[in-house]
């Protein structure tokens, strides 16, 4: 059994350390900073810089014999193009509720997912959709019309 070293500190007391360990704190702080910056890089990675889908701006060639009020859907696109006496216009067929593709019918459009209904100019007539279907920007260009899905225009704008 050893004698108690009375003049010494108890083992439960702190080891003598410099009161302020600048070197240690600086080392830990710079490591934390490096981790913080690297987190930025890691969190940035999952957000793709460009989307892999085709351009949202494209030209369509409307059939010459498109009856008034009947929708023309360019292949592979979620757009309904119409022609009437005043001109050509395009309405997005992506439901404003949760993104299903609405189907043109005799009264306008209907959504198969949650029963939203839209009139022929896109206004909501039924169901949970919060907003009318947007009209997309159409411009004359080349041999036909150029539709820009990223630009919306006021309802009723015809080219």
């Amino acid at each position: 059994m050893t004698t108690k070293p009375t003049e010494k500190r108890s083992r439960f007391e702190p080891e003598p350390m410099p009161r302020r360990d600048f070197l240690g704190l600086a080392a830990l702080a710079s490591m934390a900073a490096a981790f913080f910056v690297s987190m930025f890089g890691m969190l940035k990675l999952p957000k793709a810089a460009v989307s892999a889908s085709p351009s949202k701006k494209y030209s369509v060639a409307l059939p010459d014999a498109l009856p008034e009020g009947e929708a023309f859907v360019p292949p592979g696109r979620s757009v309904a193009v119409f022609r009437d006496g005043e001109g050509v216009f395009a309405i997005s067929t992506v439901c404003t509720h949760l993104g299903c593709i609405v189907k043109p019918n005799a009264n306008g459009f209907e959504c198969p997912c949650h029963g939203s209904g839209f009139s022929k100019d896109g206004a909501v007539t039924k169901g949970p959709a919060p907003k009318p279907l947007p009209w997309l920007k159409v411009s004359k260009g080349g041999s036909g019309f150029v539709i820009d899905e990223e630009a919306t225009v006021k309802t009723g704008t015809k080219v």
Binding site: L23, A27, L28, S30, M31, A33, A34, V37
Partner: peptide, 10 residues
Amino acid sequence: LLLISSLGVL
């Protein structure tokens, strides 16, 4: 070692 490496990484 920790300080210099971390600063280099940073």
